[in-house]
């Protein structure tokens, strides 16, 4: 398989005041295959936001390079805008970037910057909204009259409307209630299925990561400490807690039971698997 994104020896430090703790990154290398869902985990200040801003060319590497489909994105600095259409970045609390008078116009902002006009623009916005479940009756509403969860979805649709091959989301469900979380997760899933996009998600929520991500990038102090399948990363619980991260909560429960009963498996990371395993255990005794 061909890597869609490849990061080679990437380093970046912010200049200025030393007393402000900034999340610099040091010598990071990894590659992401087309169509994968990759999670980035790390505590605040570990370099997560610095890293993702390099992937769409908002920041220019101090050293090292970022390749998109095998080409250095900074080969032609004049075309960096095109990179941003190919690698869509949804920031934390994206609803704070809404500015247009109508939902339609706001979602159309990105495609318009790509040069789409008239029917082409209209079709683009409509097709994205159909994919992610934003109803036509919302089109003429002011984005500022929507509820928090709806605003978030409109803002995310605004990035998806550029049809990026790689979609990066920074804490996309932070601050939402269960309904809002469910809707945002569903829209990301639908987008990915329809366009075969690669998805990168930054999150603090290990439970979501366990059920969503194929692979995890673990950052600590600006360095890449692990890059592996979610299964392998969460199997190294001790290493995670050393850098201030944790395993999913169901794993913690199983580990605690395991302390008294060594037969209990501790390599289960999602709620669904845990329920299945414990039900089987209950039905078939400890040998299940």
């Amino acid at each position: 398989m061909a890597s869609i994104i490849e990061v080679k020896n990437l380093s970046y430090t912010y200049d200025g005041d030393a007393q402000i703790v900034k999340d610099a990154i040091h010598d990071i290398s990894f590659s992401i295959e087309k169509g994968e869902i990759v999670g980035i985990i790390g505590h605040t200040g570990s370099g997560k936001s610095t890293l993702i801003q390099h992937l769409n060319g908002l920041l220019k590497p101090a050293s090292g390079e970022v390749l998109l489909n095998g080409k250095n994105i900074w080969d032609d600095p004049k075309n960096i805008k095109d990179i941003r259409f190919k690698v869509g970045l949804v920031f934390q609390y994206p609803e704070y970037q809404l500015f247009e008078e109508t939902v339609f116009a706001d979602i159309a902002f990105g495609p318009k910057n790509m040069g789409l006009t008239g029917d082409e623009l209209k079709n683009r916005v409509e097709s994205i909204c159909d994919t992610v479940g934003i109803k036509r009756e919302y089109f003429d509403k002011s984005p500022f009259d929507l509820s928090g969860g709806e605003k978030r979805r409109v803002a995310i649709a605004g990035v998806m409307a550029m049809k990026p091959e790689v979609l990066i989301l920074d804490e996309p469900i932070a601050g939402l209630d269960p309904k809002g979380r469910h809707e945002v997760s569903a829209m990301v899933k639908n987008y990915r299925e329809k366009f075969g996009a690669t998805v990168i998600i930054v999150s603090h929520n290990m439970e979501d990561m366990a059920s969503l991500a194929d692979k995890l990038i673990v950052l600590s102090g600006g360095k890449l400490v692990m890059y592996d399948t979610a299964y392998n990363v969460f199997s190294k619980g001790d290493m995670l807690s050393e850098i201030g991260l944790s395993v999913p909560v169901v794993t913690k429960v199983l580990k605690l039971i395991n302390e008294k009963n060594n037969d209990i498996r501790t390599d289960i990371f999602t709620l669904k698997d845990a329920v299945e395993y414990l039900c089987a255990l209950s039905a078939g005794g400890k040998n299940a």
């Binding site: 908002l58 805008k81 941003r84 970037q97 902002f109 990035v159």
Partner: peptide, 13 residues
């Protein structure tokens, strides 16, 4: 800075 980056990510020039 945050808003500028967010709009730049949507292709604002």
């Amino acid at each position: 800075e945050k808003i500028m980056n967010a709009q730049k990510a949507r292709g604002a020039d």
